[in-house]
Amino acid sequence: MRPNLVLYEEEFNLVTDVIKRLVTSANAKVVFLVDKNGQLITSSGHTEGIDTTSLASLTAGNIAATGGLAKLIGEKEFSILFHEGEKDNIHISIIGHRVILVVIFDERSSLGLVRLRVKKSGEELEKVFAEIDNKAGTDTSGLGVDSPFAEITDDDIENLFS
């Protein structure tokens, strides 16, 4: 069981930067980064009009289902999924066994280009997440020493529901 995923400003900016560059280099419409539990980490490109929360949850469900299929036939995971539509296509890949990179693209790009660029960005992202894991490794809660949550009072929690 992994600790909580905690993203501080510095790593968040590093990750977002990689995603932004990928949108341009792959000629993509949108790029998302989602954690395996279905939570959106960051996105870039033409996200307006897209329900990003639903997209994140369904992507994770998709990866979980294909991961289950993989295990049934003795594979560890299927690290790349590709869905082809009439206009838009979705390229999904697992980065460092932990996060999911989603690229949506149309005829202005191609599967070959997307695969090539995703590979490079994937390597960069893997480094950043390895760094995040290192940081979390020194703190078993994964919340950081200065966690604002250690101070939550019963009243704070109660107020959420008032």
Partner: peptide, 15 residues
Amino acid sequence: MSFINYSSREINCKI
């Protein structure tokens, strides 16, 4: 496993 994003100041939990 909750996801805490200090940059956007969000915390996400799964029930």
